[in-house]
Design a protein around this nucleic acid. Structure first.
Lengths: 165, 165
DNA sequence: ACGATAAGGTTGACATCTCCACCTCATTGA
DNA sequence: TCAATGAGGTGGAGATGTCAACCTTATCGT
């Protein structure tokens, strides 16, 4: 049996990777993490990735307004609407009227939804710990603030450049 | 005029965000960076984001085998196939036989492809510089290695956990 | 040599994400 | 009070990403 990859191409890829822009690296990391999360979820339950994300945040019980939850996840409002309605149809999430804003809802987990969360959370928390463990203490200390700063910088579309029309 | 967001929900979102798993943060950052890149590309050309990524790497001229380029980008081979064929149809990329492997191709930019690259690269390089500038020197020093390590950790699907069946 | 195994590419089905138009409700300011 | 503006949610179209089946070609072990 030969190696997992054809070595020459993989080496060439590794060489180039060190010169790639940060945005490429983050995109690729995001794809890998999504694939890993799907693999874990598939082993311990049958949720899709966006379903899991929504349930995870509702389960934190730090907010219940639909808008607050949607903004935490940075979901597109269209996709969020569809995902939440699918979760309601599957009986995992309950939708109630919002006390002060008639446009939005209050979201909460049904008992079945909490079961799904409890079933998946240990594995995904272990994964989270595993990811952090892969970093040095110094990297662990700065990674979150770095990602937050990049997120803020990513929201600016007219940054300093000599060519913006 | 009132503020950009309804403040209460946004504040709640910000409060929760600090407790989100790393994988959520990276996913959201990736979405924001993609949106920013699309905005910049739309101002300076008419490529799609995957088209741009492929052209950017071919233009580095560090490799020309289709497999090497595909692995650098970590594209799914299906998506890569479709994207490259679209680029060829638009006359931006040339496809030639690979010298030693009849399964793959050699990829290169046509003059039109190089024009597209030259037209977009200044703006996107400026963006890259802007992103790095948002980080402290310490963060700049460790961010790449941290992302690489996370990428490696993300490729492992059976990490230590007490519940894997 | 030669069969077994696996990589590379293509295709089609499907999931996820983005964008736009539309409607309702909330907030602002005159 | 009320018109203007903007936020929240829905639905649909299209882009992007994922996955599985298939064929061809390359590599491995015998």
């Amino acid at each position: 049996m030969y190696s997992e990859d054809s070595t020459a191409d993989t080496e060439a890829a590794a060489r180039i990777e060190t010169a790639l822009p940060l945005s490429f690296m983050i995109h690729q990391l995001s794809l890998k993490l999504a694939a890993q999360a799907r693999a874990v979820i598939a082993r311990h339950g049958d949720l899709t990735l966006p379903h899991w994300r929504v349930i995870r945040v509702i389960g934190m019980e730090a907010a219940d307004g639909s808008t607050a939850i949607r903004k935490v996840l940075d979901f597109d409002k269209s996709q969020f609407s569809k995902t939440v309605n699918q979760l309601q149809a599957r009986g995992l999430v309950a939708i109630a009227d919002h006390p002060t804003d008639k446009r939005q809802f209050r979201l909460s987990l049904t008992p079945a939804g909490r079961d799904a969360l409890d079933q998946l959370r240990p594995a995904l928390d272990a994964r989270q710990a595993f990811l952090m463990q892969a970093l040095t203490p110094e990297e662990q200390a700065v990674i979150r603030s770095a990602l937050v700063k990049l997120g803020q910088a990513a929201e600016i579309t007219d940054f300093p450049t000599g060519k913006t029309p």
